[in-house]
Simulated assay, not measured.
Amino acid sequence: MSVRIDISGLRPTGPAPARAEPGARGRIAVVPSPLAELGMALHALSEPAHHPGLQSWVTGVTARLDPHLADRMCEADFLWRTTFSDLFLACAGVPGGALPGADLAEELELLDKLSDEQFVAAALEFTCAFPYGTPGPGPLTDERMRHRALELAAARGPRQVRFAEGLLAEPPRIRAWLREFLQDCDEAFFAEAWSRLRHQLAADTRLKTDLLRHKGLAEALAAVSPAVTVDLDAGLITVDKLGDTRTATADTGLLLIPTSLGRPHLMVLHRYGWQPVLHYPVGSPELAAPPTVEQLALRMTALSHPVRMRLCRHLARSAYTTGELAQVHGVTAPEISRHLGVLKKAGLLTTRRRGRYVLHQLDVTVVARLGSDFLEGILR
């Protein structure tokens, strides 16, 4: 399971397609986006459990938030509660692709450049489950899609129905509402946060750009996240996520946009007709590299077997040989070896030799992290 980005169309071709000036068509650019970071701020305020590291910031903003603005925040929270809408990466939808603006005002101008069809499709993505990675008619032109949008919105409550009805009937009015709301959020809390965050994001941007120019794409993507890999010969970037889809840069290029508020989310914009975007959390050296989706599946499967659960009860307390475990559990040594092999393959055991004996012990640190690793994996 992964999201794959075909980069074979990037220029220049060859072993280092990313060594190019940021912003050129068909090239890779690393650029911060104030609009994307505002989207992540709204997401964190709506789903603080996704971002335990932001608890104090969320508490502070919520405590001083104007009640009227807080109510407005609930009117369209489906644009940022589930994750956050592609509307916050509006630069990718501008025909031909564009770089994010230097400030929120420039970003909102890019948002204004999206067609009504683009705006409506992106706004209804999470609530109405419209096709994302393939072409097709939209609800503004297709009556069946319009009916489906309203039907799906009804299942989510009256607030969603009102928003969907307004969006389908008067897209310019909803666009104006969202623009004003984002400007009010900027004045209320985001401008202050951005004044701090932009320095960290700019530093990360310089680092990744330098890696692109001097070390190549593989080094730069390795610094973005261990979950991102590249096969230069195949012209393919692979992002380890719970999903299975593919997109291509064509001649529009690829944007790498860092986020400070977004951890643990590592998101790939792969909407049909939009420039692909890799929206990644800036690195934290103190955090261990997250396991892959395959590793998570192996570990959870390994621990789910009742015999291996009983083995773990002993192995968590002390180190044991295969023979000792066989005697304690009344199982043959080959059967114990098989179960230990499953646990070891999943990365849950440590082993050490004592003379001619091999001692096995549960890696309790890895097991203790499994819950947070699983949560990070499904939110990635």
Rank of each mutant, 00 (worst) to 15 (best):
M1A: 15
I7C: 10
G9K: 14
G14P: 11
P15T: 07
P17D: 08
P17R: 07
E21T: 15
A24P: 03
G26I: 13
S33M: 09
A36E: 09
A36L: 14
L38C: 09
L38H: 05
M40S: 13
L42A: 10
L42N: 08
H43C: 07
S46M: 07
P48K: 05
H50P: 00
H50G: 04
Q55H: 10
T59N: 04
T59D: 11
G60R: 13
V61F: 01
L65M: 15
D66T: 05
H68S: 13
A70D: 10
C74E: 11
W80A: 04
R81P: 01
A98C: 03
A102R: 12
D103W: 00
A105S: 08
E107M: 01
E109V: 08
L110Q: 15
K113M: 08
S115W: 00
S115E: 03
E117F: 01
E117D: 11
L124P: 04
L124N: 05
F126G: 03
T134I: 12
P139V: 09
P139M: 07
E143K: 09
R144S: 10
R144V: 06
R146A: 13
R148V: 09
R162Y: 05
E165Y: 05
L168C: 11
L178W: 13
R179I: 11
E180D: 15
Q183L: 15
D186F: 08
D186M: 08
F189L: 14
F189E: 13
S195G: 13
R196D: 15
R198F: 05
L201E: 14
A202Q: 15
A202K: 13
D204S: 15
E219F: 10
A223I: 06
V228R: 09
V230K: 03
L232W: 03
L232V: 12
D233F: 05
D233K: 11
A234G: 08
L236P: 09
T238V: 12
V239D: 07
T249L: 12
G253L: 13
G253C: 13
L256D: 11
I257Y: 10
P258R: 13
T259P: 08
S260C: 12
L261I: 11
R263M: 05
H265P: 00
L269S: 12
G273A: 14
W274A: 12
W274K: 10
P276N: 06
V277N: 06
Y280N: 05
P281T: 09
G283M: 01
P285F: 05
E286Q: 10
E286D: 10
A289N: 07
P291H: 04
T292Q: 02
V293M: 05
L296I: 14
T301M: 04
V307Y: 00
R308E: 07
M309P: 00
R310S: 07
L311N: 02
R313S: 03
H314Q: 06
R317E: 14
A319V: 02
T321I: 01
L325Y: 00
H329E: 09
G330W: 00
V331Y: 00
R338M: 01
H339P: 01
L340K: 03
V342A: 04
K345G: 04
A346S: 07
A346I: 06
G347C: 07
G347D: 09
G347H: 04
L348Y: 05
T351E: 14
R354V: 14
G355P: 04
R356E: 06
R356P: 01
V358L: 13
Q361H: 06
D363H: 06
D363L: 07
V366W: 00
A368D: 12
D373K: 06
E376Y: 03
E376I: 02
G377P: 02
I378M: 05
I378P: 01
